[in-house]
Amino acid sequence: MNPILKTVLQRLGLGLVTLFLVSIVIFSAVTMLPGDFATAILGQSATPETVAAFQRQIGLDRPPVLRYLFWIGGVLQGNFGESFSSAGGLGGGHARTVVSLIAPRLKNTLFLASFAALVAVPLSLILGMLAALYRNSIFDRLVNLVTLTSISVPEFFIAYILMLFLAVRLPLFYSLASVSPETPFLERVARCALPALTLVLVIVAHMMRMTRAAIINLLASPYIETARLKGVSPGRIIFRHALPNAWAPIATVIALNLAYLIVGVVVVEVVFVYPGIGQLMVDSVSARDIPVVQACALVFAVTYIGFNLAADIVSIVTNPRLLRPR
């Protein structure tokens, strides 16, 4: 078999094993959360009998191992179970499935993440290359200063500052990013502009600095000197001779930041009242809605593992020694 394909499949298998272990960790952690859903929903005054009856109804009376197997079995078939809170207390009614709760939220999060990533990734690569090209110049220092400042300031602060200047003082953008599934694409872009900008400011520094460092690190290589002494221009040296060999570290940092865009944006969602998956998870934790919390955690785990796998694959396919064996 093609050695690359083999390595990729190996990594994929390893990723699945990791995911399985993570699912156990998630389940255990959620089980160990203090308080339980039945008391939370029925209130302090509920009698022990009502609580027990309710627990039976949603399956909380069974031993944890059984509940885990039941849960993971369902997940494998694409069934994440039903949300506790939508069961509407003892009254019954039609319970909403976890999937129907998470899907629109995840779509929103992915939209915002892609929006931010499409701006941030090219921007930080270009800035990183320019900073490496004009290293130690005013431009380099300025880029470093600005990006470092933006990463050092808490993201909610950036969010409010942007809101103040770009939505309130200068009414250029929507201050709140309230969207519904019916919002048309262009309006959605406009409404998401400020949260996306906030996220860009948060993640650019990391990616840009790694691009710059990885390229500068390579500039000491003998083949770069060879290229210089062939009369190759500085820009071409960076773009054609250094960058292709710098992908592995850059890809790793990009992967981490893209994962952050999906997993870690709850603060930005709250500030802009954006209906993303982070907010859903926080709400579900406070409501003790275990199936939703578990599903969100699993989505986040998949995101991390997936992006890291992608970064690994990038470093494999950009290494000519692995791509084209002797």
């Binding site: 290589s221 002494l229 062939k230 009369g231 190759v232 950009t318 000519p320 020694r321």
Partner: peptide, 19 residues
């Protein structure tokens, strides 16, 4: 450089770009 004066380095293995 390259057109009128050229350079051949000691370690060709390190002086060719692997990519």
């Amino acid at each position: 450089w390259g057109s009128k004066i050229a350079y051949v380095a000691q370690s060709a293995a390190a002086s060719f770009n692997p990519a």
